[in-house]
Design a binder for these strands. Structure first.
Lengths: 211, 211
DNA sequence: GTCTATACTACGATAGAC
DNA sequence: GTCTATCGTAGTATAGAC
């Protein structure tokens, strides 16, 4: 299918070079078709860019993620909620470490610096639902209301995971030469799970003794 | 000074559009000079890009940062080390929230996805020294050796702060409508400091009771 | 040192053949 | 639907005037 090949190549090229840097000629050539196919199917470069964003949103919201989000909406037990947070973050870390996610995460990281309509579509189509599920789980786990403090906590929890891709070059420099890649990933996942416990316990303690 | 103006504009333009997306014509015009000045002073587009990176490294390693890094090297007391970690992370969060840092952080975030020689220069000229100082402080604060586990912990600590810029669009979507910007920043800084305590305490406990 | 003029390449869009 | 051909624009680099 020409359109599927075009989308795959487009995500890679737009991620690597951005909307302006990528070339429709190159994308078409790598997809084994003529450049005018892009005009025909997507109306031009901008249309292809938005289509690529929607394709990414679809890939982020895979079955396991959708199932986890739906399950999270029904959890009422603090201990269950805590386990669900850990599972969600560790699974996401796994996804970010997997090279198969390289192409579309580059696209997303790029959109963070200067968000366009493409980011809105990605957020609505997966990322946002996952974050809102985390907010709910944090509230259940700590017994706090859905206020600014809870959402700020989710930001810090997510940051620990997202840095793997968002600042991967930095992480690599800091960790290189200090262990095998597999061991480092395992250590990181263990650290994230332990941090979740540490931070949630702390938030529960803060609730009892507000400063 | 023509060269200073060229560097300022270059950081902004390269950050916004990347090496390939930015145009030397535009940069030169915005700096109020001719395009061939870039060829003369920096040998071409690539030379200007590297010069911009080195200029950024210089701005990151400002006096306060250098002083904090040097002070960190002399800290031997666990409690002092812990306070120094908090101070360093909170100050860095302040810097990232300040719009004045927008231009050069965009440049760095962009370099993370596909690091070039420019990233190596930025890492050596400030970022790396700060991270190594954090590693040392974590080791002092927890009484652990400088091993993979300590460095992984620094990655998670740094991630909480860096997400503010690296995934700013995402943070904004999650927090918008849940409080005033100033309150959110204060809440975030408080959360980061509390998380540092929570995570370090946890690491000390892990040392006593290895699983 | 700085600017103008020019050469050459590559881009996106479009029209039209098949 | 897909391709070829072509147009106008914009890119970098270079040579030479001042």
């Amino acid at each position: 299918m020409v359109q599927a090949r075009l989308l795959d190549v487009a995500i890679r090229e737009f991620g690597a070079k951005g909307l302006e840097g990528a070339s429709t000629r190159e994308i078409a050539a790598a997809a084994g078709t003529a450049m005018s196919s892009i005009t025909y199917h997507y109306g031009g470069k901008d249309g292809l860019y938005l289509a690529a964003a929607e394709h990414i949103a679809g890939m982020m919201a895979d079955e396991r993620m959708v199932a986890a989000v739906e399950a999270a909406a029904r959890i009422e037990d603090p201990v269950e909620a805590r386990d669900a947070i850990k599972a969600m973050l560790v699974r996401f870390a796994d996804k970010l470490v997997d090279p198969a996610s390289d192409e579309w995460t580059l696209f997303i990281v790029r959109e963070q610096t200067r968000p366009t309509e493409a980011f809105a579509r990605i957020y609505q189509g997966g990322m946002g639902r996952m974050l809102e599920a985390l907010v709910r789980l944090v509230c259940v786990a700590t017994g706090r209301a859905d206020d600014a403090a809870s959402r700020v906590a989710v930001v810090t929890l997510a940051g620990q995971v997202l840095i793997l891709k968002a600042a991967r070059a930095m992480c690599r420099k800091l960790l290189d030469g200090h262990g095998e890649a597999d061991d480092l990933v395992a250590a990181l996942k263990g650290r994230i799970a332990a941090n979740v416990d540490a931070i949630l316990d702390r938030m529960i303690a803060e609730k009892r003794e507000p400063k």
